[in-house]
């Protein structure tokens, strides 16, 4: 086979990380943002475990298998074990925040939410809310070229 074991896993881990980052940047739905975060997190965990791997080694468990064999590095495994649990905590917090946001504004669309939040902040400071960047501020000026007369 052209690719060896570690390269395949590196491709998988980096692919997951890239997919998650792509989703974080491009999505407009708040819930899908949480899912993309979970995706990137799985990729990072795989990458960390992969950094402690060595070929032909034993799992780092005392009394498991022959004692004179080399072990894989247990430090990244211990850290990733913590990171998985913390990741679920972050997800639960994000879901709770999404429920609160939906209760307040009635939408989960990120563009609409940004307008709502900026309007709220401006109202709190007593200034006019900022104009939307998506729509032109006024009427588009007419083209100086008159429209071509219709063919009879």
């Amino acid at each position: 086979m052209a690719l060896d074991f570690v390269s395949i896993l590196y491709i998988g881990a980096l692919g997951l990380l890239l997919l998650g980052t792509f989703g974080l940047v491009t999505t407009t739905h708040l819930f899908r943002l949480i899912l993309a975060l979970a995706l990137a997190e799985a990729g990072v965990n795989l990458l960390l475990i992969l950094s402690g791997y060595r070929g032909g080694a034993q799992p780092p468990i005392l009394g498991f298998g022959p004692q004179d064999m080399p072990m894989v590095d247990p430090i990244p495994q211990a850290l990733v074990l913590t990171a998985i649990v913390i990741g679920v905590g972050v997800q639960a917090l994000a879901v709770a925040a999404a429920v609160r946001i939906y209760r307040r504004y009635g939408t989960l669309d990120l563009v609409a939410l940004k307008a709502h939040l900026e309007g709220d902040l401006a109202r709190k400071q007593g200034i006019a809310p900022p104009k939307s960047a998506e729509k032109p501020a006024g009427e588009r000026p007419l083209s100086p070229v008159p429209p071509r007369p219709q063919e009879p």
Partner: peptide
């Protein structure tokens, strides 16, 4: 994939929690 990478404890946690 964690099982293949000789990390059975992490695999257990990922399957149960993740």
């Amino acid at each position: 994939l964690f099982v293949l990478l000789r990390a059975p404890d992490v695999a257990l946690t990922e399957a149960a929690v993740g």
